[in-house]
């Protein structure tokens, strides 16, 4: 993706495909929860336990650990750490990169074997990489999506909300 672009626009059809892919991963692994994040920590889509209230903070922290691991990789002269596994008493977390742009995160419990999670996550990241490729190709001109009146209305909201 052109690094000078400031926005990544994910169209409706691509979101549908992403959600389908995440739902399949939850079902096949009996996982509790699956998240797809942008590397900046923003949540693109999620599937599973619908009652989670902490997705935003979870996204920021997970992206933080991944970004931190990238710096560790540089120090070790390793190209990249493509996946990470965190083992808890009750829940485990497995993270995998989708190219260099997105992070797939799956939270699962003791009932699911890590080997199965790894295999199915690999399959899912391959499918998501294709979606990412389409997002890059179909990157629309920003005016199509937002429009100039959006910015004016946004400025008014900012003035109203952030006042002493």
């Amino acid at each position: 993706m052109d690094p000078q672009l400031t926005s990544q626009i994910v169209p409706i059809e691509e979101i549908r495909q992403i959600e389908e892919c995440l739902a399949r991963l939850v079902e096949d692994t009996s996982g509790n929860y699956v998240l797809l994040l942008d590397k900046s920590g923003q949540v693109i889509a999620s599937q599973g336990d619908a009652n989670r209230q902490d997705i935003t903070a979870l996204g920021a922290l997970i992206a933080g650990t991944f970004a931190s691991s990238r710096e560790v990789a540089k120090l070790l002269r390793e190209k990249d750490f493509r996946s990470m596994f965190t083992q808890g008493v009750r829940d485990n977390i497995f993270l995998a990169l989708v190219e260099d742009q997105w992070i797939l995160c799956i939270i699962f419990n003791k009932g699911t074997h890590i080997g199965l999670v790894k295999v199915l996550t690999k399959k899912a990241t391959d499918a998501l990489a294709q979606v990412l490729e389409r997002v890059r190709e179909t990157h629309k001109a920003r005016e199509d999506v937002l429009g100039s009146s959006f910015r004016t209305s946004m400025e008014d909201t900012i003035d109203l909300l952030f006042r002493d």
Binding site: S68, F150, T157
Partner: peptide, 27 residues
């Protein structure tokens, strides 16, 4: 040690047919 994080939700913004929920994440 690592970062502070504050999510802000600016609400729904924009003209009728182009409304968006805008969120700022401060670090």
């Amino acid at each position: 040690l690592f970062f502070d994080f504050l999510p802000l939700d600016l609400g729904t913004v924009g003209p009728k047919d182009r409304k968006f929920q805008v969120r700022f994440h401060l670090y």
